[in-house]
């Protein structure tokens, strides 16, 4: 019974961590209908950067968070302006070319990281203790990351629904032509969204590397994991992504405990393909369109 409760708590917390890593992808998809295949590599890059800051400068992941986020913000901005904005084709052709471009980008980022950090697994020993909640021991690092994930999720939600800039981003996601008719500079908004999404990936990486050891080739798995999550939640749907994150966290923790770690790594992909086939619209479906 205690085991079950522990697994549940761990699953929910891991869900928070997964959410943290997927939020940027969700923001970018929501606004631009673009899936950035380099998203996972951005996370790894942010994480390895935090690792170096820790190794060389003794910075904690919390302190590295804004630095990693800031760097990835700039990289995201450069990618959007230099690459994605240059693809002018519309419809399926545009989608395809964007996909291929981010496919190439993921190799560029992953191998640039490889050049800088090599291929070893890296991790930051940070918040190694455990918080005792009754009979259940919760690892501190997991708790902090998870709480931060919800913090970030809440912040993004407030930003998108309460501030005028955030609302502009939200509006552009719903109708680009409508936004342009409101005098909004869509190009600038798209760049902002992509840069922010990338920054969120970088920031997430800086925190998560204290929980999961990263290697430069981990990026692809993280991309699929993040995409699974937002697809399960209904692409661009924020409450849906949260629900999906919790489900995924629980699924993985339970699979790991009962079936072993190989099965746990496979379960993400199984869920992923299952979602694509059976619920391509996500768990919550979509808001009715005008």
């Amino acid at each position: 019974m205690i085991t079950f409760a522990t697994l549940c708590v761990l699953g929910l917390l891991w869900g928070g961590v997964y959410l943290l890593m997927a939020e940027g992808l969700n923001l970018i998809y929501g606004v631009m209908k673009v899936v950035n295949l380099a998203h996972g590599d951005f996370i790894v890059l942010g994480g390895l950067l935090a690792f170096s800051l820790f190794e060389r400068g003794g910075l904690t992941p919390i302190a590295a968070f804004p630095i990693a986020a800031g760097l990835l913000f700039l990289i995201g901005m450069a990618v959007q302006l230099g690459v994605l904005e240059q693809i002018t084709a519309q419809g399926p052709e545009g989608e395809l070319r964007t996909l291929l471009a981010t496919f190439g980008l993921s190799y560029v980022v992953a191998n640039a990281s490889f050049l800088l950090w090599g291929s070893q697994f890296q991790s930051i020993p940070f918040l190694q203790g455990a918080v005792q909640a009754g009979p259940i021991a919760v690892p501190e690092g997991l708790l902090v990351c998870s709480l931060l994930a919800f913090g970030v999720a809440l912040l993004v939600h407030v930003w998108l629904t309460r501030t005028i800039t955030g609302k502009s981003v939200h509006a552009t996601a719903q109708s680009a032509l409508g936004a342009a008719s409101c005098g909004l500079n869509i190009r600038r908004i798209r760049t902002l969204a992509f840069a922010l999404g990338s920054a969120m990936a970088g920031g997430a990486g800086a925190l998560v590397i204290s929980l999961i050891p990263f290697q430069t080739s981990t990026g692809g798995d993280l991309t699929v994991q993040a995409f699974t999550l937002i697809a399960l939640g209904g692409l661009g749907n924020y409450p849906g992504a949260w629900l999906a994150a919790e489900l995924l966290g629980l699924t993985e923790v339970f699979t790991q405990y009962y079936l072993g770690s190989n099965a746990a790594s496979a379960v993400v992909y199984v869920v992923f393909i299952g979602v694509l086939i059976f619920r391509p619209q996500g768990l919550l479906g979509r808001v009715g369109r005008v």
Partner: peptide, 20 residues
Amino acid sequence: PMEQQIVLGALTMGIAVAMP
């Protein structure tokens, strides 16, 4: 050898953008 993949990735990006 270390930069090979970066160049190939960049090339993929460039072709997708500029000469599909």
